[in-house]
Amino acid sequence: MKNFGIYILSISLLLAANAQGQVQSAMSLKETERSSFLGEWKVGLSGTDNHDERSQSKKVDFRLDLKAKYHLTSYLLLDVQPAFRLQSGQTQSVDGADSAENKLLLNQAAMDFQPSKYFKFMAGALNQRSLHNQLLLDKIAFPAARAETMFNSTQVESGFALETAIPTSTSMSANTSELEPTPTFNTASASLNWLPSKRAFWKNRAGFFSFKNLPSAVAQKSQFLGNGVNSISEADYKFKYEYEGLEASTEISIPVLNRLTLLAGADYTQNQKAPTDLNAASFYWGGAELFVNRNFSVQVTGGRFAIAPDSAVAYFSTLETNRVGYSVESIFKFQRERFNLSVKFQDAETMYQSDTQSREQTLQLKLETSYANI
């Protein structure tokens, strides 16, 4: 009861802080438009219950996300997006994995050079989700250099991107020893989006990816998340297969009634260096959003996933590999108050029998505000 009271109090404080932020945003809107600096913030509070046959954990997670963008010139932008995460809770596991931890994260820290509306070059710690789907990479930033071309019209946006990066952890560490070469991650992708209105759109992206020289530490951690790994010695590990292949994603939104929109999407990844029965991952989902009134809507989605053991590097992916299962999520969107309340359940069974994995179930309750100007 005490923890429940603390949770309710935290939610109240978050909503009050966000409301204050909206007032301040409205008062300073004209000043912000005239300034070369733009700062935004949002907060989130979530509770997660996760358990399988070997472990269980219950955590409360508080997160503060910041965005700071400064236009040095009309074509040069400094973009810094840090995040602060505080966790508390209880974890019971054999190896102590998934224990609660506090972290300073970096969503992005980049310099954008855009001399024209058709070309952009970015360098720094670049968030990978803008180019890749959740089956291949989590919302993580890699030290990278990226070149993009854009061709946009009234309703159609298209582009092509090339990137070379160093795959790292959330602490920006490459996890290499002194004798190991620097790992690399190279990608090429193309996008084509049809955007006739805010509620009606069709977004598509496809690309090629290649990991090279992945270190022993990444292989060691990935073997507990589903990847095939060989143990060379007590301290050295190596992936059974290299990771190079194709990925694609699509998302569509179709208004069918004045207050109802149908939603659907799919993600696919294939590692062409692994055997056919071990190299593919897919996630298909669908749902609908009901607009109750101008200020409130309810979105319900559900999907199924099948992720073969060596379809992606599990250490970097949002979902573990060697998993098959489903997820359902409901999001309650409060437009006037500018926050979302969501409930998500996921059931993931193992695709192939594993000594390190078993059936896993996760239930999450999350409150998150929209971005507000600083």
Score class of each variant (00 low, 15 high):
residue 328 V to I: 09
residue 331 I to Q: 14
residue 236 D to P: 03
residue 252 I to Y: 06
residue 303 G to P: 01
residue 304 R to E: 15
residue 286 G to A: 07
residue 299 Q to D: 01
residue 359 R to C: 04
residue 362 T to I: 05
residue 316 F to M: 08
residue 288 A to T: 12
residue 335 Q to P: 01
residue 357 Q to G: 01
residue 242 E to S: 12
residue 259 R to N: 15
residue 317 S to T: 07
residue 282 S to C: 10
residue 291 F to T: 05
residue 288 A to H: 08
residue 357 Q to D: 05
residue 237 Y to M: 08
residue 246 L to F: 14
residue 267 D to I: 04
residue 247 E to F: 14
residue 239 F to S: 00
residue 291 F to L: 14
residue 263 L to A: 10
residue 243 Y to S: 05
residue 251 E to D: 12
residue 357 Q to L: 15
residue 313 V to F: 01
residue 350 T to N: 12
residue 320 E to V: 07
residue 239 F to K: 03
residue 341 L to T: 12
residue 324 V to C: 03
residue 330 S to F: 02
residue 259 R to A: 15
residue 339 F to W: 09
residue 342 S to E: 06
residue 315 Y to E: 07
residue 338 R to L: 12
residue 279 N to C: 08
residue 322 N to C: 08
residue 317 S to M: 11
residue 312 A to N: 09
residue 272 Q to D: 14
residue 264 A to L: 08
residue 267 D to E: 15
residue 286 G to K: 04
residue 273 K to E: 13
residue 251 E to T: 10
residue 261 T to V: 15
residue 269 T to H: 00
residue 306 A to R: 09
residue 240 K to T: 12
residue 349 E to D: 14
residue 287 G to H: 03
residue 291 F to C: 03
residue 337 E to R: 13
residue 308 A to H: 10
residue 308 A to W: 05
residue 307 I to Q: 01
residue 361 Q to E: 13
residue 270 Q to M: 12
residue 234 E to I: 05
residue 267 D to F: 11
residue 261 T to S: 14
residue 249 S to G: 11
residue 356 T to R: 09
residue 339 F to N: 02
residue 328 V to D: 00
residue 317 S to R: 02
residue 335 Q to W: 09
residue 289 E to V: 14
residue 341 L to R: 08
residue 355 D to A: 11
residue 293 N to F: 02
residue 246 L to Q: 10
residue 311 S to P: 04
residue 345 F to R: 11
residue 311 S to G: 13
residue 261 T to W: 10
residue 268 Y to R: 13
residue 352 Y to F: 15
residue 266 A to R: 06
residue 321 T to D: 02
residue 304 R to L: 09
residue 324 V to M: 11
residue 356 T to V: 09
residue 300 V to R: 00
residue 323 R to W: 02
residue 358 S to K: 03
residue 347 D to R: 06
residue 327 S to L: 13
residue 314 A to C: 04
residue 340 N to A: 12
residue 357 Q to F: 04
residue 301 T to G: 04
residue 247 E to P: 03
residue 250 T to A: 11
residue 292 V to T: 09
residue 335 Q to A: 15
residue 275 P to W: 14
residue 339 F to H: 03
residue 285 W to G: 03
residue 290 L to N: 13
residue 361 Q to H: 01
residue 360 E to G: 01
residue 285 W to H: 09
residue 310 D to P: 05
residue 331 I to V: 15
residue 301 T to W: 02
residue 264 A to P: 08
residue 265 G to S: 11
residue 283 F to A: 09
residue 277 D to I: 06
residue 260 L to K: 04
residue 281 A to T: 07
residue 292 V to M: 10
residue 318 T to P: 04
residue 362 T to W: 01
residue 327 S to I: 06
residue 325 G to Y: 02
residue 314 A to F: 03
